[in-house]
Deep mutational scan, measured.
Amino acid sequence: VSVELPAPSSWKKLFYPNKVGSVKKTEVVFVAPTGEEISNRKQLEQYLKSHPGNPAIAEFDWTTSG
């Protein structure tokens, strides 16, 4: 189950709350306009370098507050 949070234009930000008793931590995933899922800052940096014209990296908020 995921919750969609505010994201930069043409992107989606999905929040996957951890299940009770789960060892997996809460996860935030950005979905690029191409449909590619980005789950960490390093991936995001690589994606933005190879896909010019996207929002600046500073516009991506990895917190769950939206």
Rank of each mutant, 00 (worst) to 15 (best):
S65L: 10
G53R: 05
K42D: 13
L5Y: 11
S10G: 15
I57G: 05
N54T: 07
W62R: 01
F30Q: 00
S39D: 09
E36Q: 07
T63R: 08
S39C: 12
I57Y: 12
P8E: 05
P33L: 02
A32E: 00
S50L: 11
V20I: 12
G53I: 04
A58S: 14
S39G: 07
P6W: 08
E36M: 05
T34S: 07
E36G: 02
S22Y: 08
A32D: 01
N18I: 10
A56N: 14
V31S: 02
W62M: 02
S10P: 13
S65I: 11
V23L: 14
N18S: 10
L14N: 04
E36P: 01
V3R: 05
V23M: 12
W11P: 02
Q46F: 09
Q46M: 11
N54C: 05
P55I: 06
P52R: 04
D61S: 07
E45G: 07
V31P: 00
P17I: 15
E4W: 08
E45I: 09
R41P: 12
P52E: 06
K24E: 15
F60I: 01
K24A: 15
K24F: 14
V1R: 05
F30Y: 07
L5N: 05
T64K: 07
F30R: 00
G35R: 03
A58H: 14
S9L: 14
P8K: 06
G53K: 06
K24Q: 15
F15E: 08
K42T: 13
S39E: 11
H51G: 01
V29P: 00
T63V: 05
T64E: 08
V1I: 13
E45K: 12
S10A: 13
T63F: 06
A56G: 14
A58Q: 13
T63C: 09
I57M: 12
A32Q: 00
N54P: 06
R41W: 10
E59P: 01
S22C: 10
L44N: 00
T34Y: 01
A56V: 08
A7G: 06
H51E: 02
A7S: 06
P33V: 02
E59M: 08
V20F: 09
E37D: 05
S2G: 13
L44C: 03
P52Q: 05
G66H: 10
K24H: 15
V1L: 14
A32G: 01
V20T: 12
K24Y: 13
I38D: 00
S39A: 13
T34L: 02
R41N: 09
P17K: 10
K19Q: 14
L44V: 01
K19T: 11
E27L: 14
V23N: 15
P17R: 09
G21Y: 03
E27V: 15
G35V: 00
V1M: 11
N54M: 08
V3N: 07
E4I: 08
P6S: 09
E59G: 04
G35L: 03
G21I: 07
E27Q: 14
Y16H: 06
N18L: 10
Q43E: 14
V3K: 07
P55K: 02
V29I: 12
Q43A: 10
G35F: 02
P6C: 08
N54V: 04
P33S: 02
S22D: 14
S65T: 13
P55C: 03
Y47N: 00
A58D: 14
K49H: 11
S2H: 11
K49C: 08
E37Y: 15
N40F: 04
H51D: 02
N40V: 03
S65P: 15
P8S: 04
T64G: 11
T34E: 03
R41I: 13
K49D: 14
T63E: 10
V1W: 12
N40H: 07
E36V: 06
T64I: 12
R41M: 13
Y16E: 03
V28T: 05
S65H: 11
L44I: 02
E4D: 08
A56M: 09
F60L: 02
L14P: 01
Q43H: 08
P6V: 07
S39H: 11
Q46T: 11
V23D: 15
